[in-house]
């Protein structure tokens, strides 16, 4: 199963309103509204895109070690995934 299929399955289960999530209809509507507003804001079109220069950064890893983009890029191309968090 692809990642998107798994995400779609989860979404369908959540939005069914049934167990285990028992999400109320109002909750689902609120989430849809927020996504729709963000989409219509056009913010995603302003994000850095193909051809732009990537900003250099140094951030701490889960173990507290500083990791620099320059250090990783010295070894090869870099895949960066931004996500919202564990929740």
């Amino acid at each position: 199963m692809t990642l998107q299929q798994k995400l779609d399955d989860f979404k369908a289960k959540f939005e069914s309103g049934g167990p285990p999530y028992n999400a109320p209809k109002s909750t689902i509507e609120t989430m849809h509204r927020a996504t729709e507003e963000l989409r219509r804001s056009g913010l995603a079109e302003h994000a850095l895109k193909t051809g732009d220069r990537a900003p250099a950064f140094t951030l701490n890893s889960q173990d507290g070690n500083p990791i620099s983009s320059a250090g990783l890029l010295a070894k090869g191309p870099l895949v960066i995934t931004f996500f919202r968090g564990h929740w």
Partner: peptide, 22 residues
């Protein structure tokens, strides 16, 4: 952050960008 996945090459140039408000 909006969820995003980037590929950056060794010249620091973004070669692939995938950003989705959903």
């Amino acid at each position: 952050p909006m969820p995003a996945r980037y590929i950056v090459d060794q010249q620091n140039v973004i070669r692939s960008a995938n950003v989705n408000p959903d």
